[in-house]
Design a protein around this nucleic acid. Structure first.
Length: 937
RNA sequence: GCCUUGGUGGCGGAAUUGGUAGACGCGCUGGAUUCAAAAUCCAGUUCCUUUGGAGUGUGGGUUCGAUUCCCACCCAAGGUACCA
C-alpha cells in the first residue's frame, strides 16, 4: 500500500468534522488548557504559506496537551470588520457582508485542508450582530463607569452621582478631564440635566470630546497613533493631517500604571513588554508653577529634573498654546505670529523628518523663577509638543541637550549648576553622577536627594508637586467608516444616551453608498433608516425624527480593535445569548494559557485587550485581570523573490551571472516561473509580461538565471506561495512538518519550496515502517534494547522540544528515529505505536490513518502521550572525554563507577598504547576534578 | 539617538549545566538502478597552501578547555523617537 496522502487527509478531515473530535467541553474533570491564535482578518487574497505558521505551532501544542490529559480549548474565528472589505464595497458597490462571507468561506476551506484541531462550534465573527451585540454592551459598561483613584479601579457611575448628591466633588479622586470646577452638593442639585450630563461625561471611561485627531483625507477617516507610520497612514501610505473633531474616546490612561505593573505577572516576550513599557512611557518628576511677569497668569510645566530648577534660564511653550497669544508683547507679535504660521504649515511628517533644525521665537514676556524671582524669558519652539504634559517646558540648558542647543542658537545664557562638570561643549545629562551647585538650598546634593528636597519645598510653598506623567494618550474610539460596529448611542439635545441592553444589538443599517456623505458626515449618514424611537425601542427611518420620541443615532462606528479586545472571552461560551459568556464558563476557562500571534500587535490589540480585560475585571464581569498568561510571537515566513535584470535604457535582459557592474533595472518575476536551480521559463515570462516579448534575452549556458532576494511575502512582489498547491502536491502533513522544520518559531525565515522534499521523504519512510506491499507489517515481537533506546530518546527530546516551543528540532528527531528503526528493521508494535503518538501533533493525518490500521477505533488525539523511562537510556559504560592540553581529542569508554585513580590508570594505559603505536613518548595523565581527563606534556 | 533581538558551511539551521562545532534537511558531487527520465538507494560535502593547520561577526579576558561566561567594538533586523 502506498502513502496516498491526498486520500488520507481528505478522509480524516471529514472524520474529525463528523465525529466532532475536537469539541471542547465546559465541564470536565481534566485540567483545562486554552490555546489561542490571533484570529485572522479574512482578506480577499486568501492564505499564503506564511499565514498558518503560528496556527500550526499552536495546533501542535493543543494536540500535545490533549495527549497529556488536558481538556483543551482551541478555537478559531474571524476579525471580520475592517477597511479592505469597505474599500472593495466603495469600488464595486458589493456589500462588505457579502465579500466578507465569501472570504471566510475560502479561509475556512484553506484552514480545514491543513488539518487544524479547532473547535469550530465556538467560531466567532466580529461582524456578526450576535457577537457585536456584546461589543456594544461593553461600550455601555464603560460609559456607565468612572475610574476611582482611591480604590484604583473602575466603579459604577451611580456611585459617583451618589457622592455628588451628598457632598459635591471636592473629595473625589478620579481620573477625569482636567477642566472640572469644584462644586458642592447644592451646586449639583442646581445644575440643569444637560449640565449634569456634560459633567459626568468628563468622568466616564468612554467619553465624547473635542479632540485633535489624525485625519486622513484620502481614507476619509480618523486614524489612531499606531495606524500611522512615519507620518503617513499605515494602510496605503496616505497623508495625515491634524484636525479637531468630536469623537468618542476611551480613558485608557486611567489604566496606565496597572498596564505597566501587571506586565510582571505575565509570561510574554521581553521585546513585546519593552515596547508596551515604552508606549506607556511613565516618567517621574514634578509639576512646577511659574508666574508670568506683569500678567495674572502662570505657566505649569512638567519636568523630570526638578533638581535642576536653579539652572532654568528660559521657558519654551508649544506654539499652539492659547496662552502664547495673551502674553506676546507688541514688539514681538509679528515675529511670533510668523513663526506660528510657519509651524502650522509644516506637516507632521516634515516636523518629524527634520529634528535637527532649531527654530523658535521670543514672546517678549518673562516668567518669574519660583525660588529666585529672577526674570526668565519665555520663548516658543516647535520642539515642545502641545500634546505632552502641559505643552510647556522649563529649559535647563546645562542639563538637557535640546535646551542647550536652543540656548546656544539664540544666544541665551547657560548657567552651570553642576559641581566639577565642564559644559562648554554640551549639556550634562547624567543623573547618577550629579552633584548640584549654585542652587541655594540644593547645593551639594545628589540627584535623588535634590529631587526629594525640591519637591517638598515646592509643595510647602504651594507652587508645585511631585507627579508621574505618562506618554500613553486616551484612545480615540470613533471611526468615520461603514464596516464596523455601530454605537448603541442616540442623541437627545446633543447629549449621548445609551440604548438598554435588552434592545441590543443595534444592527448596521443598509446604505446606498459606503463613502462619507456630501456634507462630510460618516457613511452611516447615508442610511435612511437610522434613528432611534424611544417608544418602540427600535431603529426607525430618519424622517421620523421629532426630538420627542425619535432621535438621531450615532453616525460613527467603532474602530477595528473593538471586537478583538474581548473575543478570547467569547470563545469560552460562544453561543450564549444572555451574556457575552456565562460566569461558569468564565470561571472554568479563566484565561488563555498560550496565545500565539505576531509582534506587530504589541502596542495596538495587545494593549487595548489588556485594558478591556482589566476594566471587565473591575466591574466583576471576568475573573482575571490579564487575559493571556503566556504569549509567543511567531516570526514571519518571508518570500524568496525572483528578479530579471533589464539593462538600463535597453530592451535587453541579462542573466544574473553576466551582469558584472552594468547598470540594470531589476524586475520581479513570478516565483512560479522559476525552477529549483533558479532558471527562468522565458516563454511563460514573455507571455506574462508582453512588454518583454521582443526583448533580447542574454543567456548563460543556454539558461536565464534569475537573481534572488528575500522579501516579505506579498502579491505585489510575485513571491506568494499558496498552501493549496503545496497540500495538493505534498500533503498537509508535509506542509505542517516543513513549516516547523524551517527554523525557530519566533524567527523570520525564508520559504523555499524545494526543501519540502526532505520532510515529505520522512513521511514516506514512516509509512513504509508500518505498511508493506500487503498492508500492515507491524508485529507483536518484543522490542530490542536498541529499539527501546531509540524510542525513549525520541520521547524525551520531543517532549522537551514541545514544552520549549522548539518544534523545528523535533522534526529532525523524528527523521533520526525513523532512520534508526528502519536500519534496525523494527516491526514491534510496542515501539511503533507510541512513536505514532509522538508524531501525531505534527502530522495528524498520517498518524490517524496508521493508528486505525493498528486496530484502534478511537482517534489518536485521545491517546496518552508515551511515558519516558530513563532506564532504557542507561549504559553500563560511560564515555569519558579525554583532552590533550585542554584540546578535546576523543572519548574513552569505561565502566561506570570507576574511582578517580582507576580512571587515571585506564587512561594512562590507553595513552601508552597510543604512544607506542605513534612511536612517541607517552604523555602525563591528570584527572581534573569533575569529569575531564586531561593529558599534558 | 535610545530599547530589544540576533550574527555558526553554498542555504535553512543543530549543539542539556562550558567538554570531539556544523546534528537534521536543502543544494551540490560521484555511484547504483533505468532504454531514458522521475522516484528510490549508497557514498562524499566547513575552509586551506592537507604527514598538517585555521575556524562559530571583530578584539581582548576568565578557564585545562569557550558557539556557550565576562568586557569593548562592528554589523543586521524589529520597535521607538524633539516626551521635557
Amino acid at each position: 500500500m502506498n502513502y496516498d496522502f491526498n486520500a488520507i487527509e481528505a478522509k480524516w478531515q471529514n472524520e474529525w468534522a463528523q465525529r466532532a473530535t475536537f469539541k471542547a467541553d465546559n465541564n470536565s474533570d481534566k485540567p483545562k488548557f486554552y490555546v489561542l491564535d490571533m484570529f485572522p482578518y479574512p482578506s480577499g487574497a486568501g492564505l499564503h504559506v506564511g499565514h498558518p505558521l503560528g496556527y500550526i505551532a499552536s495546533d501542535i501544542y493543543a494536540r500535545y496537551k490533549r495527549h497529556k490529559g488536558f481538556n483543551v480549548l482551541h478555537p478559531q474565528g474571524y476579525d471580520s470588520f475592517g477597511l479592505p472589505a469597505e474599500q472593495y464595497a466603495i469600488q464595486t458597490g458589493q456589500h462588505p457582508a457579502i465579500t466578507t462571507a465569501a472570504n471566510i468561506k475560502t479561509y475556512r476551506r484553506q484552514l480545514d485542508q491543513i488539518g487544524f484541531s479547532f473547535d469550530w462550534s465556538r467560531e466567532v465573527r466580529t461582524s456578526d450582530p450576535e457577537y457585536y451585540k456584546w461589543t456594544q454592551w461593553i461600550f455601555i459598561q464603560l460609559f456607565e463607569s468612572y475610574y476611582c483613584k482611591d480604590a484604583d479601579k473602575a466603579l459604577p457611575i451611580h456611585d459617583l452621582i451618589a457622592v455628588f448628591e451628598k457632598e459635591g466633588n471636592a473629595n473625589i479622586n478620579a481620573v477625569c478631564d482636567e477642566d472640572i470646577p469644584t462644586f458642592s452638593a447644592a451646586d449639583w442639585q442646581a445644575f440643569s440635566e444637560a449640565d449634569k450630563q456634560d459633567l459626568l461625561l468628563k468622568y466616564r471611561l468612554t467619553y465624547l470630546a473635542e479632540t485633535e485627531v489624525n485625519w486622513c483625507p484620502a481614507l476619509g477617516t480618523v486614524l489612531a497613533n499606531d495606524e500611522i507610520v512615519n507620518g503617513v497612514s499605515e494602510r496605503g501610505g496616505h497623508e495625515v493631517v491634524r484636525k479637531k473633531m468630536t469623537q468618542w474616546s476611551m480613558r485608557i490612561s486611567a489604566y496606565a500604571q496597572r498596564l505597566l505593573d501587571d506586565l510582571n505577572t505575565i509570561d510574554w516576550p521581553q521585546p513585546l513588554k519593552d515596547s508596551q513599557t515604552n508606549w506607556i512611557g511613565r516618567s517621574v518628576g514634578a509639576m512646577v508653577q511659574f508666574e508670568i511677569d506683569g500678567h495674572n497668569e502662570s505657566i505649569e510645566v512638567f519636568t523630570t529634573r526638578p533638581d535642576t530648577i536653579f539652572g532654568v534660564s528660559f521657558m519654551t511653550l508649544a506654539p499652539e498654546l492659547d496662552l502664547v497669544q495673551q502674553i506676546t508683547t507688541e514688539a514681538q507679535r509679528a515675529e511670533v505670529e510668523a513663526y506660528i504660521e510657519a509651524t502650522a504649515k509644516r506637516s507632521e511628517r516634515d516636523r518629524m523628518a527634520d529634528v535637527k533644525t532649531i527654530s523658535g521665537a521670543f514672546t517678549g514676556a518673562y516668567a518669574l523663577h519660583p525660588f529666585t524671582g529672577k526674570k526668565v524669558p519665555i520663548w516658543i519652539g516647535d520642539y515642545v509638543l502641545a500634546g505632552y504634559g502641559s505643552g510647556a517646558v522649563m529649559a535647563v540648558p546645562c542639563g538637557d541637550q535640546r535646551d542647550y542647543d536652543f540656548a546656544q542658537h539664540f544666544g541665551i545664557e547657560i548657567p552651570n549648576i553642576f559641581e566639577g562638570v565642564d559644559i562648554s561643549e554640551e549639556a550634562f545629562a547624567d543623573k547618577e553622577n550629579t552633584i548640584i551647585a549654585n542652587s541655594d538650598f540644593l547645593n551639594g546634593l545628589s540627584y535623588k536627594e535634590a529631587m526629594q528636597k525640591v519637591i517638598a519645598e515646592l509643595e510647602a510653598k504651594g507652587i508645585g508637586f511631585g507627579k508621574v506623567n505618562y506618554r500613553l494618550r486616551d484612545a480615540v474610539f470613533s471611526r468615520q467608516r461603514y464596516w464596523g460596529e455601530p454605537f448603541p448611542v442616540y442623541y437627545v439635545d446633543g447629549k449621548p444616551q445609551m440604548i438598554a441592553t435588552k434592545h441590543l444589538p443595534i444592527r448596521l443599517p443598509e446604505v446606498e453608498k459606503y463613502l462619507p456623505t456630501e456634507t462630510g458626515e460618516p457613511p452611516l449618514g447615508n442610511a435612511s433608516v437610522w434613528a432611534w424611537c424611544t417608544e418602540s425601542n427600535t431603529v426607525v427611518a430618519n424622517d421620523k425624527v421629532n426630538h420627542k420620541t425619535v432621535f438621531p443615532l450615532e453616525l460613527n462606528t467603532m474602530p477595528g480593535w473593538a471586537g478583538s479586545s474581548w473575543y478570547f472571552n467569547r470563545y469560552m461560551d460562544a453561543g450564549n445569548t444572555d451574556a457575552f459568556a456565562s460566569k461558569e464558563a468564565l470561571d472554568y476557562w479563566k484565561d488563555v494559557d498560550l496565545y500565539i500571534g505576531g509582534s506587530e500587535h504589541a502596542t495596538g490589540h495587545l494593549l487595548y485587550a489588556r485594558f478591556w480585560q482589566k476594566f471587565l475585571f473591575d466591574r466583576g464581569h471576568v475573573p482575571v485581570t490579564e487575559f493571556a498568561k503566556k504569549l509567543i510571537n511567531q516570526g514571519m515566513i518571508t518570500g524568496t523573490s525572483a528578479f530579471v535584470y533589464r539593462l538600463d535604457g535597453e530592451n535587453k535582459v541579462v542573466s544574473k551571472g553576466l551582469l558584472g557592474d552594468q547598470k540594470v533595472v531589476p524586475i520581479h518575476a513570478d516565483v512560479s516561473f522559476v525552477n529549483a536551480s533558479d532558471e527562468l521559463d522565458i516563454e511563460v515570462f514573455k507571455q506574462w509580461r508582453p512588454e518583454y516579448a521582443d526583448a533580447e534575452f542574454v543567456l548563460e549556458d543556454g539558461k536565464y538565471i534569475v537573481g534572488r532576494e528575500v522579501e516579505k511575502m506579498s502579491k505585489s512582489k510575485y513571491n506568494v506561495v499558496n498552501p493549496d498547491n503545496i497540500c495538493a502536491q505534498y500533503g498537509a502533513d508535509s506542509l505542517r512538518l516543513y513549516e516547523m522544520f524551517l527554523g525557530p518559531l519566533e524567527q523570520s525565515k525564508p520559504w523555499n519550496t524545494a526543501g519540502i522534499t526532505g520532510v515529505h521523504g520522512f513521511l514516506k519512510k514512516l509509512w513504509k515502517l508500518y505498511m508493506g506491499a500487503e498492508g500492515l507489517k507491524v508485529t507483536d515481537t518484543d522490542p530490542s534494547a536498541e529499539n527501546l533506546k531509540t524510542l525513549h530518546k525520541t520521547i524525551k527530546k520531543v517532549e522537551s522540544d514541545i514544552e520549549n516551543f522548539s518544534f523545528n528540532t523535533s522534526v529532525s528527531t523524528f527523521m533520526i528515529a525513523v532512520n534508526e528503526l528502519t536500519t534496525q528493521k523494527c516491526s514491534s508494535k510496542q515501539i511503533l505505536e507510541p512513536l505514532l503518538v509522538l508524531v501525531s501533533p505534527y502530522a495528524p493525518h498520517i498518524a490517524e490513518e496508521l493508528w486505525e490500521q493498528l486496530g484502534h477505533t478511537e482517534s489518536i488525539a485521545t491517546a496518552a502521550f508515551p511515558v519516558f523511562e530513563e532506564k532504557y537510556l542507561v549504559e553500563s559504560t560511560k564515555e569519558y572525554p579525554i583532552s590533550f592540553n585542554g584540546k578535546m581529542r576523543f572519548k574513552l569508554e569505561l565502566p561506570l563507577d570507576m574511582s578517580k585513580d582507576d580512571i587515571e590508570a585506564a587512561v594512562m594505559a590507553h595513552e601508552k598504547t597510543q604512544a607506542q603505536l605513534a612511536g612517541r613518548e607517552p604523555k602525563k595523565v591528570i584527572v581534573v576534578p569533575g569529569k575531564i581527563v586531561n593529558i599534558v606534556g
